[in-house]
Design a protein around this nucleic acid. Sequence first.
DNA 1: ATAGGGCCTCCCATCATTGGAAGGTCAAGG
DNA 2: CCTTGACCTTCCAATGATGGGAGGCCCTAT
Lengths: 152, 152
Amino acid sequence: MKHTNTIGEAASASGVSAKMIRHYEKIELIEAAERTNSGYRLYTPADIHTLRFIRRARNLGFSVDDISELLDLWKNDTRTSKDVRRVADGHLVALRAKAAEIHSMIDALEQLFDGCTNDERPDCPILDDLADAAKPARPKQVGHKFGFERVC
Amino acid sequence: MKHTNTIGEAASASGVSAKMIRHYEKIELIEAAERTNSGYRLYTPADIHTLRFIRRARNLGFSVDDISELLDLWKNDTRTSKDVRRVADGHLVALRAKAAEIHSMIDALEQLFDGCTNDERPDCPILDDLADAAKPARPKQVGHKFGFERVC
DNA sequence: ATAGGGCCTCCCATCATTGGAAGGTCAAGG
DNA sequence: CCTTGACCTTCCAATGATGGGAGGCCCTAT
């Protein structure tokens, strides 16, 4: 008797929802699970280990494509540290780019907030700026990747 | 004779693609444009101003729902600065949360990189960690049977 | 035997954006 | 007048990861 688990058990053991396990099977990130006579999917501890691998990689923000590659490397005896580095490094570069993008949004928004009264008056530099970024209300300069020179 | 422009002109003047202008009309973010006899959309300078507003807000990462609200406030004489602040503040909170999330991914990934040799060897703490996060993270000081410091 | 809960498949929605296909319209030049 | 090419129209689909729900089967406990 194999030690097998239902999809619900695999889900709670791995942290991957049953929905997503079926999804990962459909997109062929994981192999199709064995089935009972009645069609229920069965998962071995090794399968659950793989699912946990996937969930951890997702937590680090890896895309499914990246994870597919990482899984291949994980199970490939001839892999090299370099191979893994390449995948992880590409992701790190993307993460840092995303972080920079978000920070420039935050910076621009914070600048707008500086001039905002936050009261009952209708005047609002935030709207003014969105309506016309060229209008010089406050000569506070901010370098911005989106080309906003004048920010609130 | 009104000063009107085709959708292509409005697109290049506003920075919003023609595709997206039609899309914004369909989802009712903007009002349906006037049409020529032959069905071409026509845009006034005011329309283009609105489109630029939208593009700037998108550049700051506002969702379409947020922008819809901001547009209403922009055109609403009875708005208060507070109203705008509420929308912008909510977005800022979300941006900061996203930034924190990404930074925790970056930190975790950088930690894994510390132990990675980036060479031809198959050992890799990145994969090890994904496979089992409970395993002692970076056993740098553990002796290797070949005398190598077991890194990556 | 019946109720409940878990499982199955299939479809749809998100969010903003892009792409393509198939066809109509317009201006300029031969 | 007719072709050409740029522009416009609508509709449909896909992206990526995930969730929700409907309708139906399976298994176990009462």
